[in-house]
Structure formats: structure tokens, C-alpha cells
């Protein structure tokens, strides 16, 4: 494993993503759902919304960093607001 050059923060990052995937898989099995249409006018399931959230969060973090808007943890706060919005409206 040493060739992969692991660090604690990156391990935690992947652990969180893995945990999210497992949680959403269990949710999908326990509480099956029908896709719905939101403001994007596309059919999405919970998994799709998670994907949109994660991808969007990556871009929010990069834009925050690129524009130098302040400490990075505020970007995470924006991401949480974004995630809530995606799960509510998309």
C-alpha cells in the first residue's frame, strides 16, 4: 500500500464517499423509489442526486479556491447548502 502514498485526510475523504455509497445503496434497497422530475426537468433518483451533489461540490470547492474567497471550510458550508438544495429541488 505504500506506493499509493496514503494520507489520513485523503483516506478519510474516500471513506466518507464509500460510506455515502453504502448508505445510499441500503436506502435504495430498503425504500425503493420512483424517479422524479425537478427543476432540471430530468428524471433523477436519490443516487443521481448524490452524484450531482458530489460533482457540484467538487466544482464549488475549486471555484472557491480559484477565486480566493477565504478559508476552504466555508466552501464546505456552501456545499452543504447546495446538497440540501439538490435533494429538495432537483
Amino acid at each position: 500500500m505504500s506506493w499509493m502514498a496514503w494520507t489520513w485526510p485523503t483516506a478519510a475523504f474516500f471513506a466518507v464517499i464509500a460510506l455515502l455509497l453504502v448508505t445510499f445503496s441500503i436506502l435504495a434497497i430498503r425504500f425503493p423509489e420512483t424517479p422524479r422530475r425537478g427543476i432540471l426537468r430530468i428524471e433523477t433518483t436519490r443516487g443521481d442526486r448524490l452524484f450531482i451533489t458530489l460533482l457540484g461540490s467538487a466544482f464549488i470547492n475549486l471555484i472557491w479556491l480559484g477565486l480566493g474567497l477565504g478559508p476552504q471550510y466555508w466552501a464546505l458550508v456552501v456545499c452543504l447548502v447546495y446538497a440540501a438544495a439538490v435533494f429538495r429541488f432537483v
Binding site: 502514498a5 494520507t7 475523504f13 476552504q72
Partner: peptide
């Protein structure tokens, strides 16, 4: 891809020795 993510937050001068560099 995971390895690339690990590389992206560190610096190295070879020999598989890495130094934390954050973002």
C-alpha cells in the same frame, strides 16, 4: 485515481518519500 488524489496533496522528490502539501 485514488493514488492520483493522494499525490495531489503531497510533494515528492522520488524514492517514494512524500511530504504533506494540503491544497
Amino acid at each position: 485515481l485514488m493514488t492520483v488524489v493522494n499525490y495531489s496533496v503531497q510533494d515528492t522528490f522520488g524514492n517514494n518519500v512524500f511530504f504533506w502539501n494540503g491544497i
